[in-house]
Structure formats: structure tokens, C-alpha cells
Design a binder for these strands. Sequence first.
DNA 1: CTTGACCTTATTGTAACAATAAGGTTTACG
DNA 2: CGTAAACCTTATTGTTACAATAAGGTCAAG
Lengths: 282, 282
Amino acid sequence: MQEKIPIGKMAKLNNITIQTLHHYDKIGLLSPCYIDPETNYRFYSIKQCACLDFIKYLKNMGFTLQEMKGVFAEKDADSIPKLLDEQIQLIDQKMNELAQVKKTLKVAAENYRTYRQIPKMGVVERGYLPERIIYCYDGKRDIYEDQLETYEYILRELRDLALIHQFPTSYFCNVGSITRMESIKQRKLTSTEIFMFIDATCSDVKGIERLPAHEYVSIYCDHFSQEKEYAFKLIDYIVENQLEIAGDYICEVIVELPCWTQYERQMIMKLQIPVKKKSNSA
Amino acid sequence: MQEKIPIGKMAKLNNITIQTLHHYDKIGLLSPCYIDPETNYRFYSIKQCACLDFIKYLKNMGFTLQEMKGVFAEKDADSIPKLLDEQIQLIDQKMNELAQVKKTLKVAAENYRTYRQIPKMGVVERGYLPERIIYCYDGKRDIYEDQLETYEYILRELRDLALIHQFPTSYFCNVGSITRMESIKQRKLTSTEIFMFIDATCSDVKGIERLPAHEYVSIYCDHFSQEKEYAFKLIDYIVENQLEIAGDYICEVIVELPCWTQYERQMIMKLQIPVKKKSNSA
DNA sequence: CTTGACCTTATTGTAACAATAAGGTTTACG
DNA sequence: CGTAAACCTTATTGTTACAATAAGGTCAAG
């Protein structure tokens, strides 16, 4: 009965294309069991479907065709479980990566939603903010010096550090700069420190700080050049309302827009200062 | 201060290679902000790091470089959330696929473990087996006809049906053939039906049957050619031990080994017949 | 002035095929 | 018997996101 199956039929039987069979033949993964010496027509045996099944199976598992050649060459059936285990580990790794990316996407989506809900740029708000954890880095140069340039350099340094600490990349899309209370109390907006928001999970790294839950005054701002002006609005508001600065000034980057004017970052920032009622000593 | 950054430095600043920057320039994704007209040296601005950040970010999200060009061309910030949502869906899909593959791998690994624990080939065992659900297909030709050939064809038909019903591919690695009680009682090992084990989840498809929980006699067998001989061993055992056939004969493929002799499938099968104590009527 | 570090363009390679071209073979039909 | 459709062949190119290499020009330091 040994039926000789031409390539087209074999392809249909296995839901693959003729090219794929050509390809497998070319790389020596699966060659037809008979080739007509005159026409070079390829003929397969129905039994070779088993091999194709296995190829599909391994492909599903993430093996490359070259790896499969190795698998087929192995006469040792005991090596299979090892391969399977390795592949399971690889898949776990991939799934973790995907989960991480998904998290990042969700953060981004949430940020955009926040961005759309922003009431008005330049309007002072007052509200309670929960505790947040940040990873701080001191770039030793004032980021307000020259039009974002220093900021970009320091940002790169922060990212390199984050890479060393193996922080998830998602952290990198929620950053900010910090100006210490002493400076801001003197109306000096100078800062050498930037940070990224992190989870509570990585706690043994130097540079991690807690921003305590507190009442804040905040204001949204959509260009770096406005930051100083808006920050002073905050301070003015604090003075006018008999409040007192209760901690460090934070400039949080809410969202980065993928539009560049002269390649420059376009970002929405939320400036914030923790406040408390003025103590009666004054 | 506008520092002109040569390509090597820019690459280092962003943890990428010079080739990558060349590539981005070539495809028009990101071009240096200045090119020396004499030497053609490329020079970047530190601000262009923002763009690279975004490229990395989008790459992480699974966008292709061409898609990014589209994203950059869009001046509309509102299109971003849509893109993000689409990408989240894509990721969910990928994760589901990976989960499916992982499941398959685990089944395979388990099967191999079972295979190693198989006590002896050709030895009759007796034991209780839980309920199982199968998807049956009648190929209308006897699979015991010609040396696996018919079996291969029918297997392909079963798989095509499974594809139509959108069964997970993992089902395809746990198949078997069934010989109805009437035949086996007459010592006739003819079967036109094969099946795949499935979950309880897909219930509305025609062809699904339940193998009830029952006591079985079973025997392992490692070559198709031995099946008949071993099946008769089972029947003999049943007769000798005053038992009675209580249901259909099942030939379950436990594991397929990736070694081919003449391209032929090498598989370990577990032959099984449900039994009960002989009723005293005989 | 030379050496090494750095830059340029151009070509080839990667993985797993898909698409196409240009041509030969087989089969069915009138 | 002729022909058209269906099928087969080999060979080339294209896809993605770069990496690797070659052959050569440029720059800064000693």
C-alpha cells in the first residue's frame, strides 16, 4: 500500500505550505523518503507525518529548527525530560517578562487616564497623598541649570544604576526630581537629585527613601520651562493660606508624550509640596 | 552648552550599539540632529535620548520599528491610550498561548515520568481508573489494517476536526483508539475509531463521550505490532480470573518517542479493558 | 609623524519561512 | 493528439532588527 505522497498533498495533509517542506528538506530537518531521479519530484510517506507532528510540537515549545535537528540526532530518550524542563523554565521566564511589560503598559495607560482627568494646568490643588517609596540618586549637578541637558545626563546615570540593581524597567517610566525642604523654604529651586518610584519589594538598596503619607499642595504643569513659575505659585499659595512647608518638594513626571519639538521631551509634571497648618510660634 | 555627541558616545549613553543607531538612521526612525557635511560623521543631541527612551519603551511593548514610525508621525496624543490597550490585549493573547504551551510541556513531562515508572512491558495489571472524557472520531476504516498507514490518515482527520472545534493543541498529544465492547468480547480487535482525551470544558461538541470511572485490567506495550498479542493477553487474563468485560477496549498512547525507525512512530501504549466480577449467570 | 581610537559605507548573515519568477511535468478533457 | 490547468522544480528576493565584518577615512595624543 506504501503510497507515495507528492509534496502538495503532504502539505495539505499537515496544514503547512510547500515552501515549509522545501525548507525542511533544504536544512536537512526532514527530507522526502523518495525523490524521482528524473524529475526531482519529492515524495513523502504518510508515516513521515509523525515526524512533522513532532516538529510542530517542538516548534510550539519554542525550539528552533536547528535545535530540533539536535533532538532528532539524539538517540537517547532520557534526554527528552531535560529538554522539556529547560523549555518550561524558558517559558516561565518569558511569561514573567510579559507580565512585567503588561504592568508597564497598565501604568502607562493609567497615567494617560490621569493626564486626561487633570483639571487645569497651573491651578493649585490640595489633597492627601499616600506613602510612596522612591529610589534617589544625586547627580551632583543642578538639573535646572541648562534646559534639560543636565537632566538628561543625570537621568541616564539613574537608569544605569537602576539596571545594576536590576529594577524592573517599568520603574523607569515614573520618575521625578526632588528639592529638599531647606532649599524650597528659601524659595531656591535647585536640585541635584532625581528619583524613580519603586515598589516596597526592593528594600536593601542604598538610596531608597520613603515619602510619608501627608497632605500636599500640588499643581500640574506641562512644560519644563514653566516649572519654576508654577512652583512659586505653590509657595505663594502656602504663604497666603497660613500653611507651612512640611517636607521636600517633588516634581513628579506624570506622563511623557511621544511628540517632540526639536527632539525635546514633552512631559506633564505634577509639582507637590507637603504642608501642615502653620504652627502658632510665628 | 549644546553638546554635539558623536555616535559612539551616544551609543554608550543609551546602552545600545553603534549599529543600532545606524539602523535607526537608515530606516528614518531617528536621525542625528547634525551631520558633518565633510566627514559624514553623525552627531546627536543629548535631548534625543528622550526619543531613544521612547523607542526602547515601545520596543518593550512589542511594537515593531515600522509601527513606531507611525506612532511618531501621529501628532495626536489621544491615540496613545488606544495603542496601549491594543498592546495589552496582544500581550494577554501571547501569555495565554504560552500558558497553553506550558500546559502541554507539563503533560509531556508527566507522560515521560509515567513512562519511566512503567513496571514492565507485557505484564497485566489491575487497578481503578478515574472518569475520563474523550472526543471520538470514526474514520470508517480499520486502523489495524495496514501497518499504521490508515492510522496516520485517520489521525490527521481527527486533528483537522479538533482544529475546527478549536481544541487546544495540547489535546493532540494524548490520543488513543477504541474498540467497542461487542467486538472485543468476540476477540475481534478491529477499530475504526480514534479519540483524544479532553477536559470537561468543551461539552457542546458532538462526539464527546465519557469513560466512566471503573476497575480496569491494563498492560503496557511499546510497539504497534505487539498490540494484538498483548490485547489477547488481557482477554486471557480476564477469562482466567473469572472476570467479565465491562466496557470498551482502549488503546491509550502514553508517550511518543522522538526516534524513528524508518520514519515510523515509536510509541508506548497502555491497553486497557474495564472489568467486573463475572456475574453468576454464566 | 605615527598609533590607536573612532568614524564612514557596504556587504553579508541571522530564523523561518513567503512570495515570486521562469521553467518543466502530469493529468484530464475535448 | 493537443492543450490547458494543476502541479512540480530551482533560484532569488524579501521579511525583522539588528550583528559582524571589511575596507577605508578622521581625529587626538604623544
